[in-house]
Every structure is written in C-alpha cells, then in structure tokens.
Design a protein around this nucleic acid. Structure first.
Lengths: 344, 344
DNA sequence: TTGTAGGCGTTATCAA
DNA sequence: TTGATAACGCCTACAA
C-alpha cells in the first residue's frame, strides 16, 4: 500500500507488505478467488472440505475483505447514511443508537452526517454522502433545504424519516403526530383542572407543531394560551430555569405549563423548588420526551413518551425491508403516551 | 438528466437511466474523464475555461462522484471509523459530535461502530469496519478484546483513543489521567473539611481508576474510603437516588461523596432534597463530567470538568495531521479542572 | 461444485 | 495543460 504512515513509533515508515488480498488467500488455499469470495458470502454453495480449507486460510492469513472493492463490484455498498441534526440531544442519540444497532446486526454500516438545525451546507453534506453510494438513508428530523431534498429524490434510494414534522416527506416515515401530542397534553392539563396555560418551547419546526396542536385543543375547550416563551434549539435545563419567572408573571393562579422538552421542564421544576413554588399545588408542568431526568426529578415529571429506541429500530427494519424490495407501508406510526407522574 | 421516478409508490421499479458517471460529464464537456476528475479534485491544474466548462457540465447533469470507485482507485477512502461504547451517554456523544464535525469539515466521513461495554463481538465489529479501508480510527474508551486490538495494530492505520484508561494504547491518545482526577477530588474534599468519605461509582475501568486515585490520595492524607457503592454502567440519576440512603448509613457526620458521574451526583442531590439532607451543610458531593444537569441543579454541583468537545476536536485534528504524515505527539493531555460550585 | 473472463467508476502514471 | 492506459480488489455472468 502506498505512502500511508504506520502507527508510531515511526510515523513515516511504510507498512510492511501489502494487505492480504483475496487472490493471496485463494493461492494459499489452492482455489480460485471466486471460491474465497463464496466461502465468505455464500458458504452454502461450497463443499464442506473446500469451505473448511478456505476459511482456515482466511483465518491464518488474517484476511480482511476490502469492502470498498466489493461495493464497487457488486454495486451493494452495505452502507446507510444517517443524517441527524445533532447527537448531543438525548432524544436523537437514543434513536440513532437503536437504529445503528439494528443496522449493524443486519450487516450494514452507518455513516454519520451531522446536519445541524439550519439548512446551511445541508445540500453539500447530502451530496457528498450520496457519493458513498449508500443503500438507504435515515433522516432524523426533516431536511431543511430544498436542494438537499431534490438530491435525495434523484438518488432513488430508500429513505426513512423519523422525528419529522408534517411537511411532505421524501419516502418513508416512522413517526407520530406532533400536533396530536400538543392536543393530548392540552386535554390532559385541562382535565386535571388547569385553566391558565403557558408554554416554553424550542422554536424548531417540530416543537412549533406541537405548540399549534396545543393551542388548537385549548380553543376547542374554551381556553387559550396565556403566555409563551420560545427558546432556540437545542433546549437546556438553564433555559427552563430562566423561563419560570417571566412565565409566572404572565399567568393566572395555578397555571399549567407545557414544555417542548423534558430538559426545559426539569429546569422549570428546579427553579420552582428554589423559588418555593409548589408543584403541582401552585403550578403544573408537562414535559416532552420522557427523558431519564424527568423520571428522577422530585416530583417526577409528567411527560409525553415517544419511544426513540422503538422508532430507531422500526426505522431500521423498514429500511432493510425496503432495500430488500419487500412491500412496506409508507407511513408507520409509533404510539405516544402521556405519562402522568407528580407534576400534574 | 432524465427524470427518475421517486422511490415510492413503486419500490421495485428500476431507476431509469444509470447514474451519471464521470465519462458522461466528460463527454458533455468535451474533455476526458481525468479532466473532470481534476476539475473536482485539483482545479488548480486546469485552465480557467476548461475548468468552467467542466464544472458547468457537472452542475447541469447533477453529477455526484462515486466515492467508492474513487477510494478503490486512489486508495484513499476519506473515511474514519469511530468506535464508541454508546452514544446514549452525553459524555461520549459530545466528544463524537465534535469529532465528527471537524472530520466532516476536513473532508472525511465518519462510520459509526457501537462497541458496547463488554468485549463481545468487538473483534468482529472492528474487522468488518476495517474492511472499509478507513484512513484512521477513533476509539472512545479502550478496546476490550485482545483480538480487536491485534486487528487494529495489523491494519497499520492511525488510531486515536479518547476517554481511555491507563492500559497500553494502540497508537495515539488524547486524554487525561483518571487516577489524577480521583486524587484531585480527594484533596479538594479534604481541604473543604470532609473527614468521612464515600463513593458512588460505575464499575467500568475508567471510573475504577478514578476511584483508586481517590483512595490513594485519601490515604496520603491520613483518611480512608468509608463506604462505596458500585453500579453497572451506564450510570443514571435513578441509581444515584437509590445510593444515598445506604451510603449515609455507612458514613460518619458530614460526609463527602465522590460520584463517578454527574448523573449519579444529581441523583444523590435530588434524593437529599427529598430526604431533607442539607447540601453542603450535612453532605458534600462532587461529581464528574460537568454535565449540563449538574450546572442547573440547586445547589449547583461541584464537579470535575473534562471538556469532551475539546477532546473530540483535538482527537480529530491529531488524526488528520497523523494521516497527512505530520509529526505529532503520541500523547496529548487535556487539562481537567475542579469546578467548585454549591455542593462542596 | 468450481472456475474464467470481464467490468464496476475512478484515479495514478506516464506521455504528449 | 490535457490525455491514454492501466490498475484498484472484488463480484456478476456465464461456462465447465
């Protein structure tokens, strides 16, 4: 192999001896290259003795198939591209974790693309990654830029979107209704007796959809949104804490606040404890995401659970099926659930 | 370019018209394939008019270079493999996020491998990923299995480890001394007046190293570890909460507890609030990791800050330099810092 | 059950 | 500054 540095201690030294190739193994085992290929990819086609002999040679020589060459030749890259706004957010990380696990077990490798929340450089990112000839793509959250979408459509590969909003998708969707979440929360809070309502929300499109659903459901019950506070993504505990005071100023007695993330809600809860605002006596709170932190707070946070792991797994299985040519539904819905705990 | 059908509604349809290849663009621009290649990879070699003509054709035809073919031919995959125990842990996720960002800006794609905390399937994972011909590898935490290490060494590619322990590494390391963290915390707590010491620790190798350093430093000051509670990784708030009661039973008045993660420490803090244990009056706590949650708690958590973003970025830059053949130090150290806040 | 021939789409090398 | 030719390492197609 060409001038690539070995690990230390001598970074500039040439690696000794080229990597073992399929023909080396073939020669060692006394068969042709294609037989080695079959031993690895379709062992059932070979006779027992041949198979054994070849695998022994593979083992002995430490042969590692060059997947790049294999991909070029077979036109099957066995790669999936995953585009995620950020993995610093636990909700996305959880879904990606589950997705990658399933993909890995199915023999696919996942290439990670960090998209961010704005559409800047998105088309460039998508284009570059499409150059890897992925067999499928995972989109966490919708694509922002039109150009990126166009590229994807032109690539004619299966695409699954999760955590997406209601805008028209590219191909497959595994998700839930964000507006429906907002409605469910509004009804829950109303039913628990709240009559003054506030919201602390990230101003990303999905959160805003939940907010809209929230507002609509309130109107239907004859109530309305009295105070709202938008914060830029990604949401943090700090912003939750900071939001409490201004929010309380705008709200009537015994208000209910819907937070677009458990992180924001937990921040509210911490600040409430500090300020002596009793929850749920003086204030009720509902979060979103069912994060670990909400479960551990005191009182434990009422929240909406969307199973990120479930979504990731489902997305992976859909994608695999779709790649295999199996018919699958264009939209899959993961149930959401209001988990009532101590804050409502 | 001929209109190609969208993925659905017919998942089995052949995409009409092959993807645009470099020769197509070359023909359209009236040049040879290699000229198109140069326009994209070494534009400074071409004359202005030729360059313009080629790029226009590229744009017009929506040409996306096949990186698989390019990698095979040039023996430069422009891929990096990142092996991470899990991205569900914010500390790892943060470092990987930063690493991937830098790599992406430098023209590399990152393939994600989820290793888990035990060594099962690790060698298989590493081997398969090495088949992608990555130009470098990021290891978050040390490799568990000996076989996997051997494979890596044989691959003779640059490797950076972050979040690793003191065991002999494969190539480059960007990190800090875990034992040193334990010592620093012990000294800090002792200096703040604590004389009874406990620990709540994940039982992964890195945390145990910190624990050891903690115990050693205590001994040096004439104190000792009075109570310890080990929990399986990954650490959670819940386990922190659950740990408080048994720990307090074993400790003398005004004890200090070192937690191997801010998550555990925050759990302790929440439980302390619930049980009416005053912090820092009755109990002092130091966490590890400087997670967002610790900053937002009340009182805010004293902790040890290891800048995951910094490590990720540094690791990326090291790897890039190493791949380029630039001499770089085998070990880089990121400073740690005790952030004293309200709990000590 | 095994093998031969040819090509996957790009870039290195050398030549003009 | 541009091009012709020959790999890169493997797998598909077809043949034996």
């Amino acid at each position: 192999m060409p001038p690539r540095p070995r690990p230390l201690p001598d970074p500039t030294a040439e690696p000794q001896g080229r990597a073992v190739r399929i023909t080396d193994v073939a020669a060692a085992a006394g068969v042709s290259a294609i037989t080695v290929s079959r031993a690895l990819n379709a062992p059932e086609l070979l006779s027992k003795p041949t198979l054994r002999r070849v695998l022994a040679a593979v083992e002995r020589m430490g042969y590692v198939p060059n997947l790049t060459a294999g991909a070029l030749s077979s036109r099957r890259s066995r790669m999936i591209v995953a585009i995620v706004p950020t993995i610093a957010s636990p909700m996305y990380a959880e879904a990606l974790q589950a997705f990658t696990k399933v993909m890995s077990q199915t023999g696919y490798h996942v290439v990670l693309g960090l998209g961010g929340f704005d559409g800047r450089d998105e088309e460039q990112l998508v284009t570059a990654l499409l150059g890897r000839q992925p067999e499928g793509m995972l989109l966490v959250g919708a694509l922002q830029s039109h150009g990126a979408k166009r590229r994807l459509v032109e690539a004619t590969i299966p695409v699954v979107e999760i955590w997406g909003d209601a805008s028209p998708g590219v191909d497959l969707r595994v998700g839930f209704s964000h507006a429906g979440v907002g409605e469910a929360v509004a009804n829950h809070l109303f039913d628990r007796g709240a009559r003054s309502f506030g919201i602390v929300s990230s101003d990303d499109p999905r959160a805003l959809e939940r907010l809209e659903g929230f507002g609509r459901a309130l109107e239907r019950r004859g109530a309305r949104l009295d105070a709202q506070r938008l914060v830029p993504p990604p949401s943090t505990l700090r912003e939750g804490r900071a939001a409490l005071a201004p929010l309380l100023r705008d709200l009537a007695a015994r208000p209910a606040v819907f937070c677009s993330s458990d992180l924001l809600a937990a921040g509210l809860l911490i600040e409430a404890a500090v300020q002596g605002v009793r929850v749920p006596a003086d204030l009720t709170i509902c979060g979103f995401g069912d994060l670990e932190i909400g479960r551990a707070m005191e009182p434990a946070l009422t929240t909406v659970s969307v199973d990120g792991t479930e979504m990731g797994q489902l997305a992976a299985r859909c994608l695999v099926d779709r790649i295999a040519g199996n018919p699958i539904p264009r939209r899959l819905t993961v149930p959401i659930e209001i988990i009532q705990r101590g804050t409502t």
